[in-house]
Design a binder for these strands. Structure first.
Lengths: 248, 248
DNA sequence: ATGCATTCTGACGCTTCGTCAGGGAGTGTC
DNA sequence: GACACTCCCTGACGAAGCGTCAGAATGCAT
């Protein structure tokens, strides 16, 4: 073996380069879309040869997967912070929703990468390891949501309706949010719908779905707008500020 | 000008070929995914040269768009039939949901094509005319949903909650269904969720969302399972039978 | 048969992908 | 400082797909 510090320097350089690749990919993806993202372009952007890029990623789909994995960590960070919010379980669920809304406002490129990756035949081109990571991330996020649901049941705030499981309820909530974001993402669909503030609509619909679940206290019994204010001030003051700045 | 009937024969032939192209594309898309769909492959499948395929479509994305447009007509057909179902407005909304569920059961390839087309930079490669058609189709479908919502309001069964508009409510419903289908589409996500019957879960969640909207009669006041049975028997006997056969 | 119009074809140039033989650059040894 | 060794980087290359277009083929009219 040779000098450790030198070894490390090189390794650090490589590690760093991976970050630069992802940054470049993110930018290109946002500017030129999926078809505009090419390995040559990435290589040129980071001023290395294509072969070097291929030492980090097996394909351009693999790069995109890595982009989503990286950004997902930020997403989880916000969600985990939201989960620490103290209050009735339903208030914590509202906090989770707010965390995710802020996330999508702050990182609009995530949605795009996500949608590309979701296309079956593309995901198949990523490395197995990355695939497993994505799987693990999803289940981590799901765990937090079902956890809050179970807490609500334990506290007597919620009786699972129609013999649904906590997972099925979480599935419903995720569906609503994912679908809403997807529709929001394609400008043309929004214009058809003539929606002013899709984020607000998704939020309101989520509130009403929770009412439909019979999750106490209902919106008629509790001021969730106030809860929202608290979450924003107490948990996400910086993010709210940044989201205000970012035009989405 | 020459003989009209001959002219027509040729034109019919061309028309017919367009159908064959779409059929082939659908099949290839289902079997080999987006990346496996190539213009050469399509040409080979219909036993014509690539150039001929290009006389119908400008690009492979254009083909996919045409696939969705064609299948969407089937979707609209089911939805329009559902809209004729007589009953309280909420029952008609249930009928719409059932129509769409049957549609996705019967034509699973639609979801795939849809997701591809939704990716911005791909949609950009389709012809303007097709783009306009897609736009028109969406607004047609939206119109039916908002129509039912407005009927409910007119009949006093529904008071729009939280100052939402009919369009925003429709947006919420579409979001839920679209998101649910998307999650259902990717096997890996389902396995994480451990869902037995995602279609049922989406249906139940929709019911509960309508409850959340305060749309009378609520599930506690009315047997919508019975409504569902009626819809299936009275409007979609054939489709239900076919859906039973199709393993999705 | 001949001319004309319309349609079809596949070879072609171009782009991107992913690979890999060969050329550094850095490190350790004497 | 020379040499050997390892690790990393490079860009040229074959393969594959895209979209085009000059020319062949087909069908119709006279």
């Amino acid at each position: 073996m040779h000098d450790v510090s030198t070894q490390t320097r090189k390794q650090r350089e490589i590690q760093q380069r991976e970050g630069r690749i992802l940054d470049a990919a993110r930018r290109i993806l946002l500017e030129r879309g999926y078809l505009g993202l090419t390995m040559d372009r990435i290589a040129q952007a980071i001023d290395y040869s294509k072969g070097t890029v291929y030492q980090h990623f097996t394909s351009k789909e693999d790069v995109i997967a890595a982009v989503t994995i990286q950004t997902f960590e930020t997403r989880m960070d916000l969600i985990e912070r939201a989960a620490t919010f103290s209050g009735r379980p339903r208030e914590r669920m509202v906090a989770l929703g707010e965390a995710d809304e802020l996330f999508f406002r702050l990182y609009p490129d995530y949605l795009r990468a996500q949608q590309i990756i979701r296309i079956g035949s593309l995901l198949a081109k990523t490395s197995d390891e990355r695939l497993a990571t994505i799987q693990a991330q999803r289940s981590r996020m799901l765990g937090i949501a079902t956890g809050v649901i179970r807490d609500a049941v334990a506290q007597g705030d919620l009786v699972l309706p129609m013999q649904m499981t906590a997972e099925e309820m979480a599935f419903g909530l995720f569906s609503l949010v994912l679908g809403g974001r997807t529709l929001t993402g394609s400008r043309s669909e929004l214009s058809v719908l003539g929606m002013a503030d899709p984020f607000r609509t998704i939020r309101q619909t989520t509130f009403l779905l929770l009412d439909g679940f019979g999750w106490r206290p209902l919106t008629t019994e509790w001021d969730y707008e106030h809860t929202l204010q608290r979450v924003r001030q107490e948990v996400f003051p910086n993010e709210v500020e940044r989201a205000r700045g970012a035009r989405v």
